[in-house]
Design a protein around this nucleic acid. Structure first.
Lengths: 173, 173
DNA sequence: CGATATTATTTTAAGTATAAAATAAATTTC
DNA sequence: GAAATTTATTTTATACTTAAAATAATATCG
């Protein structure tokens, strides 16, 4: 049917945006599109090649970077998901033997979560492949593009932090 | 306790990245951070001010931009979520009277989804406020930053489309 | 025409996610 | 040092999400 396959014409969120739409809105939609695109690719690849999921991988990645383990709250903050979410995720990973809980000595409310040897091994097998996927998806960008994009996203991140409309906003008293 | 509140030191995905980590990976993590940040702000604000959710709002926004309505498949493509997802979302919105299904004349498998008058009215009330949130979150970016960011994200989007490792990849035969 | 393939959507099962309430252990305050 | 507050986590209820299977209608092809 298709000898030379053209990249399918994108038919995403931006499809129906107009030139006169506000730049901020178009920027947000495009950002979301990029994020979703990458996320779905990684998700699918993780499932196919390693029979795991993005949240599981993400949690393990956080632990891999924290040699001493992390508490539930720290995981929640870094992964930017609710605390209740971490409970369930960690439960499943503990069940699979990839992660373990160590009750904290100083604070009986909390525990440190860390990778088991099996978890570390599993993660080490995945991470270079994962990096390859990401590299590949960005392969059409020049080094300079990436650096510039990284820097601009840094500005955006700061801007959102500063101007966010979250619960903490408002009266400083 | 806090007289002058400093923006909380971010403690997100990037917290534990190292200078020697690959640029591609750091870029992806920062992109995800920005996307999550904005998403959570919008989500929270939608709940507080309009007692609705981001997926509901997103679906209605797609319909608002498509005067003739959209099929389930089109919605699925534009929102970049699974088709099964749309079924449930649309069901709930129909239940709330914000959206209606019109069976297609030409194809008895499909139907066109569109906003009801009540849905249109509800959306029109939300959209300027929503735009305000987005504007505000990006307020620290200059016009030029935004344009540059928009353009670079365009390149990224194309790169992901071209180099993605999705099911469609591989043998053309 | 009739078998086969494709397309649109729904259903299913499991996992992921949230907000809010509950629990329990620290910390602060008086 | 006991009461009030804060903090860490879990539980609950509900919503969202996916992949895969099922259903049903259309399109294709011999």
């Amino acid at each position: 049917m298709s000898e030379l396959r053209q990249p399918a014409p994108a038919n995403d969120r931006e499809t129906a945006t107009h030139r006169d739409d506000k730049l901020e809105l178009r920027l947000w939609l495009r950002l979301l599109t990029c994020s979703s695109l990458i996320e779905q690719n990684v998700r699918g690849a993780l499932r196919l090649q390693f029979d795991t999921t993005l949240p599981r991988f993400d949690l393990m990645a956080q632990l891999d970077r924290a040699p001493d383990g992390l508490t539930m709250s720290e995981l929640s903050a870094r992964m930017m998901v609710s605390n209740g979410n971490i409970t369930g995720l960690a439960d499943r990973l503990v069940e699979e033997g990839l992660v373990k809980r160590t009750p904290s000595q100083r604070d009986r409310r909390s525990s440190h979560i860390s990778l088991t040897p099996a978890g570390k091994k599993a993660f080490d097998a995945m991470t270079p492949v994962h990096e390859g996927w990401v590299d590949r998806m960005m392969a059409s960008l020049s080094r300079q593009d990436m650096q510039q994009l990284f820097q601009l996203l840094g500005k955006l991140k700061q801007s959102v932090h500063q101007n966010a409309v979250d619960a903490d906003q408002g009266e400083t008293k």
